[in-house]
Each structure stands twice: as structure tokens, then as C-alpha cells.
């Protein structure tokens, strides 16, 4: 989907303004709270906060220039409006949520179930979600891919992958 020029300009301005706000927030909140030594040393030449402070100021200036550029200058028209092909916004959101859930599940299951079982579960779910329905391909890949990857890392490269409660 191709966005029209005015919408693209608005989008680019909003994005640049968002970065301006981010850098402002870093100056006001991020650096004072994120660097404890800032309270004691301030911004002296030897302060640990001086360098991040200078970078943030530079980021602020560049983001303001990006806003001006987006408002006044030429904006390249993107062929991607941020949505995925012809899917509706709720559908995108549902899929994005699903991806987040799968990633979170993989992360959380890795230690209790072990690398092999958790990867087989995630792999199986994603392959089916991806559209594969042939039983033979499903069985072969759900067993084969995680096992081969596991052997490559755990046995050949001697990486101590999480084993969970399984005896291998």
C-alpha cells in the first residue's frame, strides 16, 4: 500500500517529534535518575554523566532538525505504511500479540522444560501457524530441526544449553 504525500509528511513529523520528546525526557528524567553519580558530580569535566548528556543534547538537536525537515522539506514516499499488506489493523494487532506471546513463552519455558522440548513446542506451533498441514513434514521437522540444532550446539560446540528436567 502506498501512502499519499501529505500522510507521509504527517507520519514523518510525528516520528521525529516523538524522538524530540524522548531526548527531552532523557535530559529531564533519564540522566538524573539513570546515572546516580550525576547528583554528586553534576556535569563537571570528569563526570560520568557528561558524555551521555552531550549525546542527548546532540540527539535533541538532530531530532528537531528532522522535525523541520519533515515539515518543510521533501519527504520520500514510502511504499510501506506500517501495516502488513492488505490485512486490517485488528488482524495485525492480533498477530503481533501472538508473536509476543510465542517469544515470551519460549523465554519462560526454556529453563523449566529445557532447550530441546521448549524449542520443539515453539517450532511446532509456528510451523502449523505458518500454514503447514502435511503430517509427515510436521513430524519430521518438529522432531528433526530442534534435535539437529540441539546436537550442533550442545554436543558439537559444547554449549551447556538448559536441560530442564529431561535427562539429556
Amino acid at each position: 500500500m502506498v501512502m499519499d504525500a501529505a500522510s507521509q509528511k504527517r507520519r514523518q513529523t510525528t516520528i521525529a517529534a516523538g524522538f524530540t520528546l524522548f531526548f527531552l525526557a532523557m535530559l529531564v528524567v533519564g540522566i538524573p535518575f539513570g546515572i546516580p553519580s550525576y547528583a554528586k558530580q553534576g556535569l563537571s569535566l570528569t563526570s560520568s554523566a557528561l558524555y551521555p548528556y552531550v549525546i542527548t543534547i546532540a540527539g535533541l538537536v538532530f531530532s528537531i532538525l528532522a522535525v523541520i525537515e519533515a515539515r518543510t522539506g521533501f519527504v520520500a514516499v514510502s511504499s510501506d505504511d506500517g501495516s502488513a499488506d492488505s490485512l486490517s489493523a485488528p488482524s495485525i494487532l492480533a498477530r503481533f500479540s501472538l508473536v509476543v506471546i510465542v517469544f515470551a513463552a519460549f523465554y519462560l519455558l526454556l529453563i523449566p522444560l529445557g532447550a530441546l522440548l521448549s524449542s520443539a513446542l515453539v517450532f511446532g506451533f509456528l510451523v502449523i501457524f505458518g500454514g503447514e498441514r502435511r503430517p509427515l513434514v510436521l513430524v519430521a521437522t518438529i522432531i528433526g530441526v530442534p534435535v539437529i540444532t540441539y546436537i550442533l550446539f550442545a554436543k558439537l560446540a559444547a554449549v551447556p544449553l538448559p536441560r530442564g528436567d529431561l535427562p539429556f
Binding site: 517450532f123 510451523v127 540444532t149
Partner: peptide, 27 residues
Amino acid sequence: RHILMPGLLIFCVFGTYAIQNSHFDIL
């Protein structure tokens, strides 16, 4: 791609863990 992508995900997770055996690195 529907088989490559989940495989790539597993590679990424195992490969990341392999660097310093850190669960946090995966996050």
C-alpha cells in the same frame, strides 16, 4: 520460509544463549 523462520528463531535463541550461557541475553 514457514519452516526456515521457526528454525531461525531457534538458532537465534540457542546462539544467543551460547555466548555467555545467559538467559538474560535472550531477553
